[in-house]
Design a protein around this nucleic acid. Sequence first.
DNA 1: AAGTGTTAAATTTTT
DNA 2: TTTAACACTT
Length: 819
Amino acid sequence: MDQEQITGSLNPQQLAAVTAGDGPLLILAGAGSGKTRVVTSRIAWLIAEKQVKPWNICAITFTNKAAGEMRERVNRMVGFGAEAINVATFHSTCVRILRRFIDRIGYDNHFVIYDSDDSKSLLRDICRDQNVNTKVFKERMILSRISAAKDELIYPADYAAWAGNDQESVTIAGVYAEYQRRLKNSNALDFDDLIGLTVRLFQADPEVLLYYQERFRYLLVDEYQDTNKAQFVFVSLIAQKYRNLCVVGDDDQSIYRFRGADIGNILNFEKIFNDAKVIRLEQNYRSTQTILDAANAVIANNQGRMRKTLWTQNGQGGKVTLKRFDTAQQEAYYIVDDIARLKRKGSFQYGQCAILYRTNAQSRALEEQLLMENVPYSIIGGVNFYARREIKDILAYLRTMANGTDDLSVRRIINTPKRGIGETTVLRVADYAASCGTSFMEAASHAAVVPGLGRSASKITEFVRLIEKLRSQSAGKNVADILKMVVKETGYVEELEAERTDEALDRIANIDELISKAAQFDQAAEKIGAVEGEGSVQSGAELHAGQVRTGLPALQDFLEQVALVADIDSLADDADRVVLMTLHAAKGLEFDNVYLAGMDDGLFPSYHSISSGEKEDLEEERRLCYVGITRAKKRLTLTSAKSRMLRGQTEWYRVSRFIDEIPEELLDDNRNRQTAGGQNEIGGNDSYHMLSKAQAERKREHEEFRAKPFYMRGSSQHTGSSKGTGSFAGTGLRTAGSSASGQGSVTFGKVDLSALKGSNLQKTADLDYQEGDRVRHIKFGEGTVRKIADGARDKEVTVEFDRFGVKKMLAGFAKLKKL
DNA sequence: AAGTGTTAAATTTTT
DNA sequence: TTTAACACTT
């Protein structure tokens, strides 16, 4: 492609960004401003005009999907030689580096990657072994502290030093150190390690760093506003030498602060790289002016932004629709009905419609309604396919085969399917392994000398033999065949078949799906097979290169790929289905017709962000809202419900404060409009009367769906990667045991706080009992209040019950009555 | 060792 | 509502 083809149709700002010379470059790219186009054009331009070698270019994204898209476009623009450009995610880029060089910092190059589930089990073991009271130190809390430390490149020793005398921090420092020690013993890396250890490798080994500085002379980073400190350092180290660092991002779309993303990385880019060039892309090619006006108005309420205002040459477009309903079911009914109506009218295909929400739990009501109306859909998010039990089990076999030192995987499968090996046996082997300083598998292979095993020893030996057999039979096979063999030899599917339940059938189907994914992987590997390692293709679908590998090496490649897939990666845009996902998952996507469901204060913005008192929390929610609004190209609908069922309880909500931030003239607002009968204009879910045959059938299907356990839902034809989420929704406001009126609208901040009686917000309010008082609990009976302490979110009350001993509970939950 | 029942706990977003 | 850990049984 020549220069004219590359730069021909760019606007002046885009052109400036594409053709900017060497040195640090910050491209502030507003939503829908043609960011990907600019990045890919710049890559093409560097090669065509600056004679940069393709293999000296590295483009980094956050998701495989983004990497895949960029790869595709780069291939199209650059043509010959494009495959030598490194286009990959942070994580997979780091994995490749570590696979090659991690032995230089004392790890084994054949490490496995632990997902968050694995991390959690590991942590549970540690807490048990170290007698950490998980009532006080919640596992999730510890994990997030460890993760935050790693994001900040704080190693266990630093953490311990920092902890000083603070008891809580000292405990966590101890757990962190042990966690890291066990990871290393298992030859495992968690997600954060992938970045953190790469940085450590660079810092420890100048030779390796120099190698990558030379190799990646031109570095481009997408979604820069979401980088954390470790990622920032990683990028900076590589860019240090040639300083050709081009970062692209939008501070208004930074939505991963909770996960360690540091918006300062983009806000301070000019300060850190003082000769940086800054280019703003403010022309939007995506949305109507009305939609942009709404987005601009909302985000204007945030402080500390980089100046930037979106505009478009697209028309004004229709107003933003705002609908308020009594219940989430009515909200769902309206949305689905609207989609079906527009489809009938020929206005939009299903695939052009998206329903976005704050929390995964909201998908349920929508999903039920979509089923009722027979509207095809797919859900992104919930429980990751690779996080399902049966999938994790099978993968644990593969991991054990590929890396026998991975204790967690070995222990996961040692009695799955059941082989009569119980917990005590496992603990004895684990103890022995610990005392010898070997891995669990190593100890198991000497079962005869492990003390106290008795008759179980033979069972352990049998298991070890099974693994050996699986290993030796893998030789020369591709991954799909290895998988089939594993399933057969272990009797895993056999056991499921014997169960004869729907659930078991579902699990078997998932295993089949895994096998076909493996087959796809094998195919891709064969295709690329001829290309040699280092400078080769790496994209979402085909993470691998090098010679065609079989047996255990192939297995390792496969494991690596599946460890790094995210939900959003599976979104296929060719199917004509309505897409449901969280606002987070929607970043980077666009749809003609968008519904933002659940615009309720306490849900969105979340209760947490409202009550934390941190301005930054609310601002992040607002950025999320900005992201949501700017997904829409032509039509945007905001919906809200006065009440929703949450954890079996009805919660009442006021309309989201973000709605108030949108100028009224942009809104088509039904909030107070009622139909003649005084009824809300939208039908509810009690419209079951007068069912047609087809409707009756749908109703039956629907009820079947409802009867299914949550984790089983979504494998139906209607859904792609639907995963029935088990997650919880944000805590809304609870009007305790409330007057069923529904008038109880509650407002935070400046407004009406009168309805807060009995709500969670009682935190700061007074409890009607104090220390020393006698109280009654609905389950525990009578007791004496020993202590009332301020907890994170609510007051923690310690009560000594007459018959149940001392309990610590949250005041909001306990509902204690003073006697 | 394995299966069953009970109970407590809880509240976001996920590379 | 859902889950996961725990206690209790067989």
